[in-house]
Computed example of a mutant assay.
Amino acid sequence: MLFPQLKFQEFLHPRPKPKGIDVQCKLQHFALITYAIDPIRFKDLIPERFQLDTIHYQGEEKALMSVVPFIDVDFTSAVFPFPKFTMGQTNYRVYVIDQEIKERCVWFIGTTLDSWTLIVPRYFWQLPWHAAVFEFDCQQDEYGLYKQYKMRTESEWANAELHLNQSTEDTWKYEGFPDLESYQVFLTHPLAGFYHRRDGKLGSYRVWHDRLKPQPAKLQHARFELLERLNLVSFEDQLNPYSVLIEPMNEFTIYLPPQTF
C-alpha cells in the first residue's frame, strides 16, 4: 500500500487566538532524530484508539518515532505579561492516526525537562514529564549550518547523548513517502499529541505553529537509554537513524490546559 501524498496547504491554518493560560515559546536548536521501527514493538505502548502511521521502508512495514531535543526560549504566556523561562527539553514521540477523528497526530511516550516548572505539567496535569539536566553545545557557521550540535541529558528516566553536524552535502532521506513534501508534513506538522497520564488516563493537548523548515543533518553519535530500555531501538541501531533534521529556531503556541479522556 502506497503512502498518500500530503500537502502543506491542506494542514496549514491561521493561529487560533490564544486565551486563558495558553503559552507561546521559541524552540532553539530544534532537532528531529527519527527511527524506523518494527510496529510490533509498540503493541503494549499505544492504546487501540490509535493506529501506527506506517511506511514501507527497505521492503518492510515500519513505524516512525522521533527523538526531539530543543531549548525552550522565551517560554511565557501567550495572553498576559508574564516572566519568560528558558529550559532544555526532549520529546519522545511516535507518529499515529487517531481512529476516532481520523487525524494524524503523535503519541508521546514521555518528555524530559530541565526546569523547576516541571511541577505544573507533572503534578497538576499528570503529564508523563520527567526531571532532567541538559547540556547543549551548539556551534553554527556563517550560513547557519551546525558545525557542531552536542546535547547531553542526565535523567533517571531517560539519559541521552547526541552529536550531530551539518554540511552543504547533506541530503534529504524520505524513502517510503511519495515525495519530499509528504515527508515534511508527516514529520513536522502533527498538531495534536496524546499520551498516558501518570494516573493511567488518556490525555491530550494541541499546539499551533507555522510551516517548519528544518534541514538535513548527519548523526555522529547517539545514545538514548529510553529506546534501549523499552526494546524499541538498540544502542547499535540508534547509530543508523531513518533521518535527521535540525532547525535553528521556530515558534510554537501551546493550548492549555491539557484535556483528559
Score class of each variant (00 low, 15 high):
residue 254 I to D: 12
residue 111 T to V: 14
residue 52 L to D: 07
residue 143 Y to N: 15
residue 176 G to R: 04
residue 159 N to K: 11
residue 237 D to F: 03
residue 57 Y to G: 10
residue 167 S to P: 02
residue 13 H to V: 10
residue 170 D to P: 03
residue 193 G to T: 05
residue 161 E to S: 13
residue 77 S to F: 08
residue 233 V to H: 00
residue 31 A to Q: 08
residue 44 D to F: 08
residue 15 R to T: 11
residue 129 W to Y: 15
residue 42 F to E: 02
residue 225 E to D: 13
residue 150 K to F: 13
residue 112 T to E: 09
residue 198 R to W: 07
residue 218 K to I: 12
residue 159 N to V: 10
residue 232 L to V: 02
residue 261 F to C: 06
residue 199 D to G: 06
residue 243 S to K: 03
residue 58 Q to D: 11
residue 166 Q to H: 00
residue 100 E to N: 00
residue 183 Y to Q: 08
residue 72 D to W: 12
residue 109 I to R: 10
residue 42 F to R: 02
residue 176 G to Y: 04
residue 210 D to A: 15
residue 203 G to A: 02
residue 256 L to T: 08
residue 182 S to E: 04
residue 188 T to W: 12
residue 208 W to V: 02
residue 22 D to S: 09
residue 211 R to T: 13
residue 202 L to G: 00
residue 142 E to S: 15
residue 189 H to P: 07
residue 14 P to L: 02
residue 180 L to D: 05
residue 180 L to T: 06
residue 228 E to L: 03
residue 142 E to K: 15
residue 117 T to Y: 11
residue 188 T to K: 06
residue 139 Q to C: 12
residue 84 K to L: 04
residue 24 Q to N: 15
residue 98 D to F: 00
residue 228 E to T: 01
residue 141 D to H: 01
residue 104 R to I: 12
residue 231 N to V: 00
residue 170 D to S: 10
residue 49 R to C: 00
residue 26 K to Y: 11
residue 167 S to W: 05
residue 249 M to T: 13
residue 201 K to S: 13
residue 253 T to C: 13
residue 148 Q to L: 14
residue 47 P to I: 00
residue 175 E to C: 10
residue 206 R to P: 08
residue 185 V to Y: 04
residue 17 K to A: 14
residue 201 K to L: 14
residue 179 D to I: 05
residue 190 P to H: 10
residue 104 R to W: 10
residue 204 S to W: 08
residue 69 P to H: 05
residue 95 Y to V: 13
residue 217 A to C: 04
residue 204 S to Y: 11
residue 31 A to I: 02
residue 163 H to N: 14
residue 111 T to Y: 05
residue 215 Q to P: 00
residue 58 Q to R: 14
residue 99 Q to T: 01
residue 128 P to I: 01
residue 157 W to P: 08
residue 86 T to E: 15
residue 256 L to W: 05
residue 107 W to H: 03
residue 150 K to E: 13
residue 33 I to T: 07
residue 229 R to A: 13
residue 141 D to L: 03
residue 30 F to L: 14
residue 227 L to R: 10
residue 170 D to H: 08
residue 228 E to D: 05
residue 154 E to P: 05
residue 189 H to C: 11
residue 25 C to Y: 13
residue 157 W to C: 02
residue 188 T to F: 11
residue 208 W to Q: 00
residue 85 F to P: 07
residue 18 P to W: 09
residue 37 I to M: 02
residue 54 T to D: 04
residue 129 W to I: 11
residue 67 V to P: 01
residue 18 P to R: 10
residue 96 V to G: 01
residue 4 P to L: 09
residue 183 Y to F: 15
residue 224 F to A: 03
residue 26 K to C: 14
residue 210 D to S: 15
residue 39 P to H: 05
residue 70 F to L: 12
residue 50 F to D: 00
residue 64 L to M: 07
residue 48 E to M: 00
residue 224 F to Y: 06
residue 83 P to I: 07
residue 113 L to G: 01
